[in-house]
Amino acid sequence: MLKWIDILNFARNGNPEPDQRVEKSETEWKQLLTDEQFAVTRQKGTERPFSSDVCSRFDPGIYACVCCNTLLFDANEKFESGTGWPSFTQPIKENAVAYLKDHTHGMVRVEIVCNTCNAHLGHIFPDGPQPSGLRYCANAVSLKKVEETV
């Protein structure tokens, strides 16, 4: 289980190697994604809070990167954070998500990106529920539900 100290170490010292890499040109990404998906995932945008019903849905399943289909989060790790964005306590695998220092908007944060294609997902914070204490705060448009679990 990842803890905040692990996240900080990844952001400072480098992320785990992804299982694979997906690289596309800006034109290729634009052809594959909606305008909003492109703005969020490729240009580090943020969707409006509470703009998606994904926040309030807790049905079983797996969430993948909308850009490259890499499995990112299991719905069993999802919780209601009250922030207006889907929130998770852990990634599906340690190397699914990468962590980058983010000093934009006058804040110091840790950005989360898909470790396979570098799609911007959102940010991570140390104010989630125990035992990890982590809150992976993701843009719903950066995710897609790909698998139901039984």
Score class of each variant (00 low, 15 high):
107 M>L: 11
38 F>T: 06
76 N>M: 12
14 G>Q: 13
96 A>S: 14
3 K>S: 08
137 C>D: 12
17 E>P: 10
58 F>G: 05
20 Q>K: 07
102 D>F: 01
43 Q>T: 06
102 D>M: 04
113 V>E: 02
142 S>P: 07
28 E>I: 03
130 Q>T: 07
116 T>I: 06
36 E>M: 10
123 H>T: 13
92 I>L: 14
108 V>W: 04
134 L>R: 12
55 C>V: 07
24 K>L: 08
93 K>G: 10
50 F>N: 08
19 D>V: 09
129 P>H: 02
72 L>A: 07
29 W>E: 11
38 F>D: 04
4 W>A: 12
99 Y>H: 05
100 L>W: 07
143 L>Q: 15
36 E>N: 14
71 L>D: 10
143 L>A: 05
148 E>G: 12
92 I>F: 06
48 R>I: 00
19 D>H: 11
31 Q>E: 13
81 S>K: 00
34 T>L: 14
37 Q>T: 07
55 C>W: 04
81 S>D: 00
25 S>V: 08
90 Q>H: 05
22 V>K: 14
95 N>V: 02
69 N>I: 07
42 R>F: 10
33 L>K: 09
107 M>N: 02
145 K>A: 15
61 G>K: 11
10 F>K: 03
33 L>D: 11
113 V>P: 00
40 V>D: 08
74 D>I: 05
89 T>M: 07
5 I>C: 09
16 P>L: 15
148 E>M: 06
68 C>F: 03
45 G>R: 02
44 K>M: 15
96 A>C: 03
36 E>L: 11
75 A>D: 09
110 V>S: 05
101 K>L: 07
135 R>F: 14
7 I>W: 15
132 S>T: 15
98 A>N: 02
79 F>N: 00
66 V>Q: 00
8 L>I: 13
85 W>M: 02
54 V>A: 13
50 F>T: 00
94 E>C: 06
114 C>A: 03
54 V>F: 01
85 W>Y: 14
45 G>C: 10
132 S>I: 03
115 N>G: 01
116 T>F: 08
58 F>I: 00
114 C>E: 03
144 K>L: 08
11 A>R: 01
74 D>C: 08
140 A>G: 03
64 A>C: 13
6 D>T: 09
1 M>C: 06
84 G>V: 06
